[in-house]
Computed example of a mutant assay.
Amino acid sequence: MKTRSFFILLLSIIVSCNPSEEKKKTKTKMEPEHNTAAKSEIEQYDAPSFTVAEANQLIEFPLHCVENEYPNKLGQTIGSDEDLQSPEALHPIFYGCFDWHSAVHGYWSMVTLLKQFPDMEKADEIKQLLQKNMTTKNVLKELDYFQKDINKTYERTYGWAWLLKLTEALHSWDDPMAQQLAENLQPLTDEIVLKYKEYLPKLVYPIRVGEHTNTAFGLAFAWDYANATGDTAFKKLIEKRAKDFYLKDENCPITWEPSGYDFLSPCLEEVDIMRRVLSETEFKDWLDTFLPALKNNDYHLEPGKVGDRSDGKLVHLDGLNFSRAWVFYGLANQYPEYKHLTNSANEHVSYSYPNLVGDSYEGGHWLASFAIYALQQNRSDEGKAPH
């Protein structure tokens, strides 16, 4: 015992004499975090910049990939030789960016950036591309693919959710071109809504994973569309199913996250849908039971670390950082008592955003969309429940 006491005393002396206990500097924007040692205080991270300068850089990602047909991961079920066609023949709009859903949120990125920054450098080029590709004829071809019996579950529900997010962005844009594009896209949008309405009542258990099939993510984007377009029946269905799935959840084990390929947080995606569908009182009571630690002003969640950004699956963790950030931003924007989570969101963005570019980067075809959505939520009240 004496020997143990001596070492404890010696350790305390060393710590007390350590001259490095200076006040840590505020992180400059977009500076990645490299120190993973335990911290005696919360480091503060600047909010990421989202101006026309960033928009001019981010727009290069969808412009580079939405008409780039190969490489391509079709992910389709083959019913006959007729299904063995090129990506563009099968999907005359959403054939680029490696896979269907990434092409969809590539178009969402273009619409969102153009809508928010109409004076961006390549505005005219973007408009021409949108009008050239998002025609009634092409939409009907996309619709035909989804209506085949063998494609009933195609892109369920991740791609569905992003298609509705694209329609929502067009619908809420007071611009004649946008309204025409939304009208062109409506038949496919209606088909996706119908698929949701057929699927959700049959889903007995939610899918709680950190990738495409996460139910909470699919519900959140669908709710945004239903809320923006005034589809009351669809909105009520989403609210009911969200409450069925998540209302009794308690003590989500967020310390178990992330899994190695996650780009969504199973715990935080639940937070994102429930803050939409519950009243303020209901939500705060639920969150106190579901993730009580979030209310602590010193709450800290370490960003997901990427071991190899040339690996298409490992780079998913950059997506996780952006999606965690948009959940934290949304929660902090809606409820002042969670404003401290803005710093955690900033930290997550600051880790991943500087790494978005690079010749060997495997996330360029989709992660720019995640970055844009996170940056947008930093100063947005999108998804705020109208109670």
Rank of each mutant, 00 (worst) to 15 (best):
residue 65 C to D: 06
residue 67 E to D: 13
residue 70 Y to S: 13
residue 70 Y to N: 14
residue 70 Y to D: 12
residue 71 P to Q: 09
residue 71 P to E: 08
residue 73 K to S: 15
residue 74 L to H: 09
residue 75 G to V: 01
residue 75 G to L: 05
residue 76 Q to P: 00
residue 79 G to I: 12
residue 80 S to G: 11
residue 81 D to Y: 02
residue 81 D to P: 00
residue 84 L to C: 11
residue 85 Q to D: 08
residue 91 H to K: 14
residue 95 Y to D: 05
residue 97 C to I: 07
residue 97 C to H: 07
residue 99 D to H: 14
residue 101 H to Y: 07
residue 101 H to R: 11
residue 101 H to I: 01
residue 102 S to I: 01
residue 102 S to V: 00
residue 102 S to G: 04
residue 103 A to F: 04
residue 103 A to H: 09
residue 104 V to P: 07
residue 104 V to I: 15
residue 104 V to N: 08
residue 108 W to M: 03
residue 108 W to E: 01
residue 108 W to F: 04
residue 109 S to Y: 00
residue 112 T to W: 03
residue 113 L to Y: 02
residue 115 K to V: 03
residue 115 K to L: 03
residue 116 Q to W: 02
residue 117 F to S: 03
residue 118 P to E: 08
residue 119 D to C: 02
residue 119 D to S: 10
residue 119 D to R: 09
residue 120 M to C: 00
residue 120 M to G: 02
residue 121 E to Y: 05
residue 121 E to Q: 12
residue 122 K to L: 13
residue 123 A to D: 11
residue 125 E to L: 06
residue 127 K to C: 05
residue 127 K to I: 13
residue 127 K to F: 01
residue 128 Q to R: 13
residue 131 Q to P: 01
residue 132 K to P: 00
residue 133 N to W: 13
residue 133 N to A: 11
residue 134 M to S: 02
residue 135 T to D: 04
residue 135 T to N: 07
residue 136 T to C: 08
residue 137 K to R: 14
residue 140 L to Y: 13
residue 140 L to Q: 13
residue 142 E to R: 11
residue 143 L to I: 02
residue 144 D to M: 06
residue 146 F to V: 06
residue 148 K to H: 10
residue 149 D to M: 06
residue 151 N to W: 01
residue 152 K to R: 14
residue 152 K to G: 00
residue 153 T to W: 11
residue 153 T to H: 11
residue 155 E to H: 02
residue 156 R to S: 05
residue 158 Y to H: 10
residue 159 G to S: 07
residue 159 G to E: 05
residue 165 K to W: 07
residue 166 L to H: 07
residue 166 L to Y: 06
residue 166 L to N: 06
residue 167 T to P: 07
residue 167 T to R: 15
residue 169 A to L: 08
residue 172 S to W: 02
residue 173 W to G: 04
residue 175 D to N: 15
residue 175 D to P: 09
residue 178 A to N: 06
